[in-house]
């Protein structure tokens, strides 16, 4: 509303750069998750989470 033309174009430039960083990071994180699942990390998490973790509650 009160933004002048220069600020608006600068903001658009920042916005597109920001969007590019977001897309790259999201792609990398999705790849990391898929790689983690593929190499079998989920069963380790499940095994830890379904048993009482004595260290986590201060008894281990």
């Amino acid at each position: 509303m009160g933004w002048n033309q220069n600020l608006r174009s600068k903001s658009r430039m920042d916005g597109s750069r920001r969007t590019a960083v977001q897309i790259i990071l999201l792609s990398l994180t999705v790849c990391a998750m898929v790689w983690g699942v593929y190499r079998g990390e989920m069963p380790i998490v499940l095994n830890k989470a379904v048993n009482v973790c004595l260290e986590c509650i201060g008894l281990g």
Binding site: L28, T29, V30, M33, V34, G36, V37, E41, M42
Partner: peptide
């Protein structure tokens, strides 16, 4: 990679 990827994706 699984937990780190999840946290970073949620954070992004």
């Amino acid at each position: 990679f699984y937990a780190m990827g999840f946290i970073l994706a949620a954070g992004v």
